[in-house]
């Protein structure tokens, strides 16, 4: 449908219906290179489902998703990851039995085939990357700690770190500060602001204070459709938005 564009991600007319219920309904949305986009919306608006559609967890009923002008709705999960899309889940999804180091190592983008991983050897490049990521997510001191004993906030960060190891061009984070303390939220906001320097980031968030700290452009989702889109101040002033979401 669309011709070549400069957008990193182009979602057009995307619909998914669960037994007739349209969780995402003819949605069209574009993400630029190096953009940080925040998606907000009330519970059940379809935010998580939208990320599920992009990363291949859920198959679209109709519509198109193009990443760097490549149609990805027909790809399966690991292929979508390999073209450069990383996704953080709403609840921290890390490997509790492995150490922080191993969690990061396993997420690295080389040695992804069976025999590639069997004969995979750590390289100085990998070591350096793990160190860099660990320092980004403030887990340098915990590299040898079993991930299962980390605090909730640290687990959230670890998962972000695991995504960074994949070197994605598009990073999607589903409620990354849920369950975090105020201090951890501030630090996460800083982290995200740093992260979007050389990649695009989509963040789903509820916490408006947090959103204000990171948001440049906000998309408000409601009942699977876009209700408003634009700068934070503009969206906050939008009457429809106030009615369904902010004004409660």
């Amino acid at each position: 449908m669309s011709t070549n564009t400069d957008f990193l991600l182009a979602i057009e007319d995307l619909t998914v219906s669960f037994d007739g219920f349209k969780a995402v309904d003819s949605l069209t949305m574009y993400i630029d290179k190096n953009e940080l986009r925040v998606i907000i919306g009330p519970n059940g608006a379809g935010k998580t489902t939208l990320l599920d559609l992009i990363c291949g967890k859920t198959k679209a009923s109709s519509g198109s998703i193009q990443f760097k002008n490549q149609e990805i709705t027909k790809l399966v999960e690991h292929q979508i990851t390999r073209v450069g899309i990383g996704r953080k889940f709403q609840t921290p999804s890390i490997y509790e039995n492995l150490t922080v180091y191993q969690n990061l190592e396993v997420s690295y983008s080389e040695g992804r085939s069976v025999f590639g991983s069997l004969f995979f050897k750590s390289t100085p490049k990998l070591e350096a990357m793990i160190e860099e990521v660990a320092s980004d997510i403030q887990l340098t001191e915990f590299l040898e700690t079993q991930a299962g004993v980390l605090s909730h906030g640290q687990k959230q960060w670890l998962e972000i770190g695991m995504l960074l190891m994949q070197e994605p061009e598009l990073l999607m984070l589903d409620e990354p500060v849920a369950g975090m303390s105020a201090k951890e939220r501030d630090e996460t906001a800083e982290l995200l602001n740093r992260l979007c320097k050389n990649r695009s980031v989509i963040v789903i968030e509820h916490d408006m204070e947090f959103v204000k700290k990171i948001a440049r452009k906000v998309t408000v989702l409601h009942q699977g459709k876009i209700l408003a889109e634009g700068a934070m101040e503009k969206v906050q002033a939008d009457e429809k938005v106030i009615e369904v979401y902010l004004g409660h």
Binding site: R82, S93, E105
Partner: peptide
């Protein structure tokens, strides 16, 4: 090997492994 750690990872969070490519 890394494959051994991946097995443990899969046993724990299969989806996470899938979405790590």
């Amino acid at each position: 090997s890394k494959l051994g750690r991946l097995l443990l990872a899969m046993k724990d969070k299969e989806d996470r492994v899938r979405f790590s490519g």
